[in-house]
Nucleic acid binder design. Structure first.
Lengths: 267, 267
DNA sequence: AAAATAGTGTCTATGAGACACTATAGT
DNA sequence: ACTATAGTGTCTCATAGACACTATTTT
């Protein structure tokens, strides 16, 4: 039986006399529980770049459903909790991450996406520098896996994950779609906004920044023009320091500064 | 009392024995109703461009809450209905629109956004040519209002609506935020994707296309370079026909064709 | 010295902005 | 003829890509 619930915007009970009562009286008489409601969860793509590859945090599911498959960190939204607050709480609870950059990505609401029932997932994207994930690795079943994207540019589509030995790891539910959407967002905003800096430590070399761009785009970028663009964008400030323990000429260290530059860039 | 509901990913009841039972048995025993759930609605920004201005469809609310204010068309998501299906249904029910382009925009979930209780709104953006809204105008309380955006570029922020006489019309709930997000999305995707064509009839002049770009960006664009870019993009095909009833030289009519060009553009 | 990567200078191709000019409709 | 807008040709400037070259570290 399909429940195309009639919106409570105009509930039957108060429709006739509704025009005369006050807003307070209306709200007091209003019972929202008359409509069947879905559950709402937040799922988070916690992304970083290390070893020249885009990586995300996943957990091996120990319970049904999708037992043995890998899932993005996530959980249900509290009834008095905003979506952003839920994402912040879940980042803390599930990945021990605080103060990291995150933003809402897309909402996945296909009726069959979770066998437990109607669960609508608001997906988030969190960006962290690789060293911030050292604590996560020790967490209960957590793994930081390489992402494989099989479509070019911002075409979109699912993405899959692999372990260090190149073995495919199955993702639970529709999490390959969520992951694909995250990569699409990253690729689309990479040039227009300074997202790449969120994936790097505070002090960085231009080479490391280029590695991040190449890992996200999945293809090489032109070195010369990349350096010029980055230095012209006004996001970088030379520290005067140089890289250490490189087996070749050490590169200049830069700091990310957004002096007066809006986020995203305003034209 | 704050209900930060413990995620049913690992429900207490089946935690101990969960590792031994089958997925079928787990799901049969699983009761999702133990957690308090929000309502989920879809709100739609139905946008067009006419008279050199970006316009959206709003309804004057006849009932509490926010009685007398203007609201975007919207309604609750059916328990077995996907989010896209809910948007399609609401476009048909509320604005008598079928077969129009629409996409998901952002999800608004602040706990206090609707005084009736916890209602999470998945916002959608629908783009229609101006003549498609002639039937909407006659609908119950519907109005097609000019949009005012007070921030430059893709900075983001709220947007407000005005009637034909320049009078400010108050928007209900957080609909000015939703509207602002819609404009931000339009501005961000205007150059990279052929969204502008969704706001125009099938046959169009370059001038009309430029008007759409200027209305969305909120500032003039360079005519010469705009013409070159549009003709080079491969989205336009000359019909050989010319504009009628213009009080000056009639412009060439073009048709939108996306021959082999992906949506959005793949590089 | 050899290897490897960092960083600079310069040439070329492309696309945006500017502007002058021509074309074609209504009045 | 006059006005208004459509549409073309060309110049300049900014930026991306390509490539040659120099610089500085480890081994």
């Amino acid at each position: 039986m399909r429940n195309v619930s009639k919106p409570p915007h105009a509930p039957e009970a108060s429709e006739q006399k509704g025009t005369a009562i006050t807003e307070e009286a209306f709200l007091a008489a209003y019972d929202m529980r008359q409509f069947e409601r879905p559950s709402v969860a937040v799922d988070i793509v916690v992304a970083t770049v290390s070893g020249g590859a885009l990586r995300v945090v996943v957990y091996r599911r120990k319970e049904h459903p999708a037992r043995g498959k890998y899932a993005l960190p996530g959980g249900f939204v509290g009834i008095d909790e905003s979506l952003d607050a839920a994402a912040r709480r879940l980042l803390r609870e599930k990945a021990r991450l605080e103060g990291v950059f995150f933003e809402q990505l897309y909402t996945f609401g296909a009726p069959g996406r979770d066998p437990r029932g109607r669960i609508i997932a608001v997906a988030y994207l969190a960006l962290v520098p690789p060293e911030a994930l050292s604590a996560v690795a020790s967490a209960h079943g957590a793994r930081v896996c390489k992402v494989l994207v099989e479509w070019p540019g911002t075409a979109g589509g699912p993405a899959s994950i692999f372990d260090e030995d190149g073995r495919y790891l199955p993702l639970a539910f529709d999490h390959s779609s969520i992951l694909g959407t995250a990569v699409q967002r990253l690729r689309a905003t990479l040039d227009a906004t300074p997202v790449a800096f969120r994936l790097l430590p505070h002090e960085l070399t231009l080479r490391a920044l280029q590695d991040v761009h190449e890992a996200i785009r999945g293809r090489p970028v032109n070195k010369d023009s990349f350096r010029r663009r980055m230095l012209a964008a006004g996001w970088l400030e030379a520290t005067g320091e140089r890289e250490r323990d490189a087996s070749h000429r050490p590169a200049e260290l830069y700091r990310f500064v957004s002096r007066g530059i809006a986020w995203p860039i305003v034209d």
